[in-house]
Design a protein around this nucleic acid. Structure first.
Length: 235
DNA sequence: CCAGACGTTGTT
DNA sequence: GTCTGG
DNA sequence: CCAGACGTTGTT
DNA sequence: GTCTGG
């Protein structure tokens, strides 16, 4: 699944490597991130009348009917298998899809040594740490605070065989050729296929994932430095 | 009809 | 154990 | 996802 | 807002 990720690639380079033609100016300046956690601001790219535009959104979807932002902490992921049916995700899946740029994400393996369990994080990334986009959904909410809050969630699917030993779920990726379909198609079947039966080739896809163990400093969301993605030895 | 949930993950 | 905050 | 709180009153 | 459970 995906509950923590990285985005260290600077803006102009980021969108170029993602094959996204858009103006990063609306985002303002932002630092390299090595531990992005739920409830924090993340970048969502949406289709804006044909043009694509990036915008900051709070991670953790808060449905429009909710009067409490805290529900977002439990809506950080949406299962692709059921996303078209769930009350909280159905409308966003139909009309409010987005792309969420990242260049790596973390998974944890829990291992027990005697009675003590330890959580070993791994950083998962593509060769050359090339950026990619998660399939995302967004919604707006004004009931909770009186202000309009934009929020989003990341879709998950069964893990690719290459990383299944690490975890049985993984985030859903959208390849450049499918950006436009994901963002603006009104063909439900076509959109559903992108997350349920994704087609990849040798240049893109989960089979290219690399991963290595990293410091447990990552476990604490307050720790956000480049050291978070350095390989460490496991014991 | 109204009340209450609306979600995922992991672990047991 | 369960929920909230980051 | 993991970490950290989980409660109230009164006082500073 | 919409669905499920009672």
């Amino acid at each position: 699944m995906c509950g923590r990720f990285t985005l260290k690639t600077p803006a102009p380079q980021l969108f170029e490597q993602l094959s996204l033609q858009l103006d990063p100016a609306p985002l303002g300046d932002f630092p390299a991130r090595f531990n992005i956690a739920p409830t924090q601001s993340i970048i969502a790219v949406l289709g804006d009348k044909g043009e694509l535009a990036p915008i900051w959104m709070r991670w953790g979807l808060v449905p429009s009917w909710s009067d409490d932002l805290s529900i977002g902490s439990r809506m950080i992921n949406a299962r692709s298998e059921t996303v078209s049916e769930k009350p909280s995700f159905r409308k966003p899946f139909a009309k409010q899809r987005c792309l969420i740029p990242a260049d790596g994400y973390f998974e944890w393996q829990t291992t027990k040594v005697g009675s003590k369990s330890t959580k070993q994080p791994y950083w998962i990334h593509l060769p050359q740490d090339k950026p990619f986009v998660f399939a995302g959904l967004w919604d707006t909410n004004t009931k909770a605070t009186g202000e309009t809050v934009l929020t989003c969630t990341i879709l998950t699917a069964a893990a690719a065989p290459e990383i299944a030993s690490l975890h049985d779920r993984m985030p859903v990726l959208i390849k450049p050729a499918d950006y436009q379909t994901w963002l603006s198609s009104e063909d439900k079947e076509q959109v559903e296929r992108l997350v349920k039966e994704p087609v990849y080739d040798e240049t893109f896809g989960p089979h290219l994932w690399r991963y290595h163990p990293v410091s447990t400093a990552v476990n604490n969301p307050r720790h956000d430095s480049e050291a978070n993605i350095a390989q460490v030895a496991t014991t």
